[in-house]
Design a protein around this nucleic acid. Structure first.
Lengths: 125, 125, 125, 125
DNA sequence: GTGGTCTAGACCACT
DNA sequence: GTGGTCTAGACCACA
């Protein structure tokens, strides 16, 4: 699993890390029970500070994507809470769809984008 | 047009302002050419700092939602750049759909949410 | 409100801070809506690092004792979740009562201690 | 006597071990003079490192719950120090009761929980 | 001036 | 060797 970090992005490094790992899980490159590199190891690979990786792992644990096992380090462990997930997703969809509408993006086009994303995710798996 | 600001949210106030105004445009409560309240007036209404409103207006200008007119203040003025909008939307969809997939949210459910959002937006207009 | 930190304690500084603040709320020295010192200010007062105070505040926010308001800093804001609180309390009581039983501490003595604690808390308020 | 270890818990494994053994003594499943499994044996049973079991036994020895006998291994041997036990218990009660009060848990509810815990302990014995 | 982020280096507890 | 804690200093976004 390769993590791509954009140092020029405005997005915080730890947020990018979180997103990348979540993408990895969504595309089945990371599966329930898989171990992630240790904070030091991953920090070295990417060329960032240990604490930044640590923060990403902590956030992911808090959000229910990882478990921090003292023996095996960070392990993928999904805490399902579908109702909450749906609510959050609707909230987020609202914002980005509103932006789209302002640029004349229609309902069908959004559906098409959703399908594209799903196809790409399942294609990578 | 009423703007709801959540002071407890982690989201920066100016980002919330931006989102609210974009929502307003998407739901047709604000239309091309409409004037927004002056920086000072809006800041007083909401009870936030003038600079915060200023920042929100500036960002919206840069993103192509507003025009800052010396005489009429902030005016809704949409600079269409649909291709860019679609790219950004796909990027954002990728992240939130990935989070959904991790919580077992399926393709159909996302489509359903998209429809819900569109229906609510057009219902409010 | 005076916070006492024991630098010789095995307990992490940020945990001590959390406990002290929770004690403060329980004894009504801190009330819903009260502001706490800024991280830098409190760090200076106690003579510890800013980040340590920050961590304490973050934990308290996560546990539902504080709200981090961008304008007013850390504010006491209790998120009630009584059922969860009772479960956690029972769990914790189990452990410390077990230790007591091993040292021949009886049920009545525990009840007496509970009353002592409550009396002291309400006495300080 | 079965020891339940939660590898997902934030609590250190050796602390969990200590607590489980103390619970065992409190519920009379382990009695004065009983021998515990050897370090190696227990480590194998639970599937943890020998050193972790060793640490737990050492801590329990130091806290006055065990005696480490060269021939019989770890033996339950309670060093009573009731005054110290009461002080520690009050200290600990203070913290968890404070947390409870913040969540609106009242004195009677704490007493009820104490009784529940005692009833469960004596029921298991 | 505030918290958020990032870096850096150190020590310790745990496994 | 692992994560957890603490310190320290810097820059930035936010209000």
């Amino acid at each position: 699993m390769i993590l791509k970090i954009d140092f020029n992005s405005e997005e915080a490094l730890y947020i990018q890390l979180c997103n990348q790992i979540i993408m990895g899980i969504a595309t089945d490159m990371l599966r329930e029970g898989d171990s992630l590199p240790s904070v030091r190891q991953l920090a070295d690979e990417i060329g960032i500070n240990m604490h930044t990786v640590n923060k990403a792992y902590s956030v992911l644990r808090q959000e229910g994507f990882l478990r921090l096992d003292r023996r095996r380090g960070a392990v993928v462990a999904l805490n399902m809470d579908k109702l909450r997930a749906l609510n959050e997703m609707k909230q987020n969809l609202g914002i980005i769809i509103a932006r789209g509408i302002c640029q004349d993006v229609g309902r069908d086009e959004v559906h098409a984008l959703v399908d594209e994303v799903f196809d790409e995710f399942s294609g990578q798996g």
